[in-house]
């Protein structure tokens, strides 16, 4: 398979994720769409690593996975805190940072 196919696929996944981040209102689903965008980037990194013939791109993708895991833990912690404070789980309602 040519590398360009993987890059086109990663671009599509990234765009679908970006549309989801804008359109959806549930912060949980927004986090899921962020995962989609990060995975699109990961696929491009690994495709470029294959094209280049070096493994540095794979290490980069591994670090991106770590960043995604951190983002998930913090984001889910914030969602649970919103639920505990009996706020509506809706980004349109959440316009201020003050707890």
């Amino acid at each position: 398979m040519d590398v360009v196919w993987f890059l086109v696929l990663s671009a599509f996944i990234f765009c679908i994720g970006a549309a989801g981040v804008i359109v959806r209102r549930d912060p949980l689903v927004i986090l899921l769409c962020l995962e989609l965008m990060l995975n699109g980037g990961n696929l491009a990194l690994i495709a470029f690593a294959r094209m280049h013939g070096g493994e540095a791109g794979q290490i980069f993708a591994l670090i991106v996975m770590v960043i995604a895991a951190c983002e998930v833990t913090i984001g889910l912690g914030m969602i649970v805190a919103m639920y505990r404070n009996r706020l509506r789980i809706d980004v349109d309602e959440m316009s201020e940072l003050r707890g």
């Binding site: 040519d2 590398v3 360009v4 890059l7 294959r50 094209m51 280049h52 013939g53 493994e55 794979q58």
Partner: peptide, 15 residues
């Protein structure tokens, strides 16, 4: 130009 190829030649232990 390498985009339209299968990528560089790599050994079996790649990745």
């Amino acid at each position: 130009e390498a985009l339209d190829t299968r990528g560089a030649e790599v050994g079996p232990g790649f990745g």
